[in-house]
Design a binder for these strands. Structure first.
Lengths: 115, 115
DNA sequence: TCGTCACGTCGACAGATGTCGACGGATGTA
DNA sequence: TACATCCGTCGACATCTGTCGACGTGACGA
């Protein structure tokens, strides 16, 4: 059921947003201006729009410090849902080893063959 | 590099396509008509369109048998790229344990903190 | 051969989406 | 205070996308 409402995939479907996430994955935390410089194929206001989508999708975190806003990947957000979905599709040979974590099995069972 | 051209995310960004993939993940193989019956919120020609996208994105396989076409999830296709991308974003605590497999490290290094 | 089934594709349409420039609100500095 | 910086939002525009019905094609059965 939850396999049909994964906001992260919508967020991940855009190339610019993936570039933003890649940058955040490398540097950990970046301001909007810094992101706009790195992605640079689009303007700052466009980056801001994308960040809103990433925010409301539960993909990134926002931390405010004065007039700056630092963004970072939310590793506990909807990306995990997307990850589990792919995990289910790929079937065996894939392990999610969460340190904290509630049981993984509770939501996405291994996937059965009906054939 | 490759983090910016992952066709699977485009394919996964649609709810109907995720439903199709879920169905294929459960049943293994399905014809177009069978998929259209299970998804049922859209018509058959629409399902066919989605299958084309899933095909050209390297997400599903097609097997022809007479006048029927059986579709199944391509576990060696671009879904793995998407999986690795998310793996990189989530950072530690995630393991891809491929049985065959070229080296995983060759493309997506663990990701460094610069902060 | 003729009819039917299982599909893919095309044309048309409405709605969603990405992009930009302009504007305004906060926050810091002189 | 006055000004600059950082950033979100709005309006406008062009393009992409999902959807359907109609049509054509290849495969099967009578």
């Amino acid at each position: 059921m939850s396999a049909n409402e994964i906001l992260a995939f919508d967020a991940l479907s855009d190339r610019v947003r993936r570039q933003i996430l890649s940058a955040l994955g490398e540097d950990g935390e970046l301001t909007v201006t810094e992101i706009a410089e790195r992605v640079d194929v689009v303007g700052r206001s466009t980056v801001s729009s994308h960040l809103r989508i990433l925010r409301t999708s539960g993909v990134v975190n926002e931390r405010r410090d004065g007039r700056r806003r630092y963004y970072s990947v939310d590793t506990d957000g909807s990306i995990r849902d997307a990850f589990r979905f792919l995990q289910g599709l790929l079937g065996a040979g894939v392990q999610l080893d969460m340190s904290a974590s509630e049981a993984i099995e509770s939501e996405g069972q291994p996937h059965k063959k009906v054939g």
